[in-house]
Design a binder for these strands. Sequence first.
DNA 1: AATTACCGAATGAACATTCAATCGGGGCGC
DNA 2: GCGCCCCGATTGAATGTTCATTCGGTAATT
Lengths: 192, 192
Amino acid sequence: MDILAEKKKAIFESTLELIKENGFHGTPMSMVAKKACVACGTIYHYFDSKDTLIAELYAYVKKQMADAMFEGDDEQKEFKDRFYHLILSHCRFYIKHPNTLYFIEQYINSPYNNREPVKDNEQFQHRMWDFLKQGIDTGVLKPMNIHLLGILIHSHVVTTAKLYFSQRVKINEEDFPNIVQVIWDGVKNHSD
Amino acid sequence: MDILAEKKKAIFESTLELIKENGFHGTPMSMVAKKACVACGTIYHYFDSKDTLIAELYAYVKKQMADAMFEGDDEQKEFKDRFYHLILSHCRFYIKHPNTLYFIEQYINSPYNNREPVKDNEQFQHRMWDFLKQGIDTGVLKPMNIHLLGILIHSHVVTTAKLYFSQRVKINEEDFPNIVQVIWDGVKNHSD
DNA sequence: AATTACCGAATGAACATTCAATCGGGGCGC
DNA sequence: GCGCCCCGATTGAATGTTCATTCGGTAATT
């Protein structure tokens, strides 16, 4: 179970990195095999097909993200502080895991996305929705569709992380709070 | 020159639609040829390779977008009105051209993006930057890096357009102004 | 006539997937 | 403890398919 898991993990990590570099097309199974130091056939011992591998990889990184996400969230604190903390953690996760960032973005914008809906562990989504709902109910956030709100915020985070790695616009971690302020001012209820 | 342009255009449009449906990998040249009602060889009369076709297609749709973008912008109006008008036009362009929306998103998040930097007609970018700069200089917008501002706004627009076509969150054109308000509140300078 | 547009079968390379063959470790009889 | 067997894990060369691209030729346009 240990060695088994190790090999599967090696395949995941290799695929992740190669896809970031070369995209789905640009990464033949043979390349994944070489990078993961296994034989081609071994991959097929663990996964039915390349599509399956990619779909499972998506679930794998999604779970990692969910696990990392709410760490350090303190329900006792004020809403705004929690908001900043959550968004910044999320940004930092992507900064720390660029392979994941680019893989997810590619995946979401590819036809893989709608092929077989991976049964998402939607832990992350639900905790986020609860948090946002609380913000709306207490009048701190604009009254809006929660899903919409969540997606707008997430897209803001992703854009920020991508920018961090881009050549054209140079930002660093010290700029993050200012960028988070943009989305905060956007979603907060200005009537108070 | 006329018929020539027609055939080239047919190839562009077919590629655009097929890539939206099936992605880069999922669209063989033979399929493009069939859909465009030309022979395989004809495509190679107009384009050096599949990569070239895709790169030129990107420039082609980018130009269409730029052309459609600033239509109806009135420099006499108040900044906020112009902002809403521009953002809404941009949203509506994507709504009207979903193929373009999904193609661009796939392209940007693929390794094609960094392969050969298409010499962008950056007309759109520059007009946008000028507009944003004016907003900052007059104190209406938060003082921020203009490129950063532009990208954050654009990502908001793209997210909105994608949401429009998504199953999960149902929004329609009447919701747009509220969504634009989020980004407006986000970027406006609240100190006045 | 000459140049250009167009055709589509043929080519060959790249790649996902298969499978027959080997490895290795743990259970079992002695 | 020792040898043997079994079975899942692993291997990587071989297979068959799917394309991108080519090219010899035909039609249209000048």
